[in-house]
């Protein structure tokens, strides 16, 4: 059975473009133009994945409210924010609500489709494996990285990363000890408009999340003027 994807976006052109592109990938798409519409739709049936714009018509925080409502009903539901609000504070509050990813506009539809499929797969993997050790997991020193389940743990402790952050980290640890350039990190974000600054911000967020678990964490090193490096020696 085809997975159902809900798109909440107030701009009809973009909504139609998303819907077209995603439908072509073989998903069932339900699109809504406002919060009320979306809520009514969710009442009938919960989708397998939700793509939310934050500003819906006059309501500037409608996306956040929807996210909260949805995750209250189904905590494992993958939610992606797809928005023109790219301020750091919005991103942080969106991810804090429990969204899986936060994507700024403009978006590449190919990347979007890829994300959707990976998130759906991850959700499936998580649901199947539950808490058992994943066979797809990779271990790099104290770091445990499960690419399929999008799970990261440091010294046995689970670390919550957004989709983008996960991909960047995965890129970084592909070859530990080797510097990874900004450019390849940018590609890893699967976003169309990324600056060094964006990478730095992401990296800082990742570092902070690790530091929350382990104060001594210092594996992510800056390569000034080039990029970043994962170093197993602290």
């Amino acid at each position: 059975m085809a997975k159902s994807i809900a798109i909440v976006e107030d701009d009809p052109d973009q909504r139609a473009n998303y819907a077209d592109a995603i439908t072509k990938k073989g998903y069932v798409v339900r699109s809504y133009g406002s919060r009320e519409e979306a809520l009514a739709g969710f009442d009938q049936q919960l989708p397998d994945l939700v793509i939310l714009d934050i500003i819906l018509g006059e309501e500037v925080d409608a996306g956040f409210q929807l996210c909260r409502d949805l995750l209250a009903r189904a905590p494992t539901l993958p939610v992606i924010f797809l928005t023109e609000r790219i301020n750091e504070i919005d991103k942080i509050s969106g991810l804090r609500l429990g969204a899986w990813d936060y994507l700024p506009k403009p978006i590449s539809l190919d990347y979007l489709a890829e994300r959707i499929s990976s998130l759906l797969r991850i959700n499936e993997v998580r649901a199947e494996q539950a808490e058992t050790e994943s066979p797809t997991a990779r271990r790099i020193g104290d770091l445990m990285l499960d690419q399929d389940a999008l799970l990261v743990s440091w010294k046995g402790e689970r670390i919550d990363l957004s989709g983008t952050e996960f991909r960047m980290l995965a890129k970084l640890v592909r070859a530990p000890g080797h510097a990874v350039s900004y450019e390849s990190l940018m590609n890893a974000t699967m976003q169309s408009l990324v600056t060094n600054n964006t990478i730095n911000t992401h990296m800082r967020n990742i570092r902070k999340k690790f530091e929350k678990v382990d104060k001594e964490f210092a594996c992510i090193k800056s390569e000034y003027g080039y990029g970043y490096r994962w170093s197993n020696e602290s």
Partner: peptide, 21 residues
């Protein structure tokens, strides 16, 4: 400006992608 431009830009970008598709 960014806010206002990003939406039509996104429309444009996604439209172009769909068009190519």
């Amino acid at each position: 400006l960014r806010h206002e431009i990003n939406n039509p830009l996104n429309t444009l970008s996604t439209s172009l992608q769909n068009l190519a598709e």
